[in-house]
Design a protein around this nucleic acid. Structure first.
Length: 129
RNA sequence: GGAGUAGACCGGAUGAUCGCUCGUGGCGGUGCGCCGCGGGAGGAAAGUCCGGACUCCACGGGCAGGGCGCUGGGUAACCCCCAGGCGGAGUGAUCCGACACCGGCGCCACAGAGAACAGACCGCCGAUGGCCGGGCGAAGGUCGCAUGCAAGCUGAGCUGCGGUCUCCGCUCGGCUCAGGCAAGGGUGAAACGGUGGGGUAAGAGCCUACCGCGUCUGUGGUGACACAGACGGCACGGCAAGCGUCGCCCGGAGCAAGACCAAAUAGGAGGGCAACCCACACGUCCCGAUCAAAGGGGUGGUUUGGGAACGGCUGGCCCAGUCGUCGCCCUCGGGUAGGUCGCACGAGGCUCAGGGUAACCUGAGCCCCAGAGAAAUGAUCAUCCCCGUGUCGGACCAACUCCGAGACGGGACAGAAUCCGGCUUAUAGGUUUUCUCCAGCG
RNA sequence: GGUCCCAUCGUCUAGCGUGGCCUAGGACGGAGCCCUCUCAAGGCUCAGACACGGGUUCAAAUCCCGUUGGGACCA
């Protein structure tokens, strides 16, 4: 198993990649965010966060991207490989407490079958031990 | 104490866990990881409204265009800042001001009598001239009377008295007219100075005092300007964020500027190879009598010329014209994706001293203080701080108020993108200084 | 990041350079009435806007400044 070597490659940045996911991916809508996923040829999963201008000012957009990047980093060890994921945050996500957002995030990924069989907490324990 | 005024400053704090990015040192490694250390958003980073630095282009001057506009200073520069003048607002501290020029062109709707070297509606006067009426005086004409005069009568004349008419003079009244006036009313945003007194027919800068205005002189000030005096005697309306005039300033574009490296694909320039047919020259072979020559045929495809075919362009199409030779190889140049630089030591910051009313300047010492790239500077939790809501307990008879505890909710505006100096706009809450006004106490 | 432009009824626009009878005109659309057996067409009537805030001026949709919201271009 080849781990993604650095944080920069873990996120989708090029507009051609993002357009490809938007064209061919399957979608999931929740009150806090939208999720688009499709398969890729790379041996690891990648995340992309898209926040448009309609979301708000620069401060709100930056904060949304930071929060969802952090959520992506927390689950990055447990995501099924060869997947490109695109997240569209909604404005409600910044008003809600972090605990509820985190629960909605993990349950959405689990519902799409994107998490590996092992639970996130157990993986954390085994890695630390 | 309350209300205000002008500045300066802060813009939640601490800790734990997990992370991002840059620099640097070490280790592995070969251009990527791991570990240690250090740095990591703002007063507005914003709007992009001004002014610069920097880069490229242009560079000889003018016009055009744009900007600014009281004075003096500061500055790299400024639509900036400081100090002052003038005008306005406020009881005041203070605040506000595109604050040069109306000579030329243009505009000043509606209303109003009249709106730009204006005008006379209502109104006032009617002095002067005229008209009408009354009174007084004087002169003349005419009529009547006579007790008058000259010789007796008549007439005429003269004289006296009365009536009437005309003219003249004085005076009173009226008002239509000629005319005088612009004080008052009314219109308007604005009506050709204001107030008091005199003056007059009524009035009027007509005269005068003060104020305002203009001109001149003097004094003070670097200057804007202020003050004083004399004279003039209201003649000179407003608008330049209307055209314009005067003075000063400005070359254009912008870091997506610009410099360098450089895939794939397409295409450009040069060279080489290959490539259909014909003709000429040439090389070679054969025939041509034994050699040689003229001549003929085959072959090669080095060179030249022509043609055909195909494709592109002009063209709606044909004709016609024109350009190219499709494939392969080499070299060169431009250049896209992408990458590197520009890119953070600067009109830098802090402290002290000196000069200056101040903006600011000078000197000394110390410091290095963000550099990302769809874009880092964070996420979560805990404790504390501040504000609001309602609860409980205590002080109190109760209310108000104060103290304490724990619960819930909230903590502004807002995110560097080449960099500085400003302006403008957004902003919860808090600290502090100056001054003013009001109220109370001593 | 930089450069530039625009904003008028629900929609498309005129008026803005030269400020004044602008109480802002027109078309389509909307509402009501008439006509018709009914609908359409036609006729009549009505409602409906100068993005916002200051300034200049006697007077601002128009001139000047700022704010807000849209749009275009630059590798």
């Amino acid at each position: 198993m080849t781990r993604p070597p650095q944080d920069r490659a873990f996120f989708l940045r090029r507009s051609t990649d993002i357009e490809r996911v938007k064209q061919t991916g399957r979608r999931l809508q929740t009150p806090l965010f939208n999720l688009v996923s499709c398969t890729s040829e790379l041996p690891y999963a990648r995340f992309g966060i898209v926040v448009g201008k309609r979301f708000g000012g620069a401060v709100a957009r930056n904060r949304a991207k930071r929060v969802f990047r952090e959520l992506a980093r927390q689950v990055r060890e447990h995501v099924v490989q060869r997947q490109d994921l695109l997240v569209f945050p909604r404005r409600e996500a910044l008003r809600v407490k972090h605990r509820t957002l985190h629960d909605a995030w993990t349950s959405a990924l689990r519902h799409e079958g994107l998490l590996t069989s092992g639970s996130g907490l157990r993986c954390d324990h085994s890695a630390s031990v």
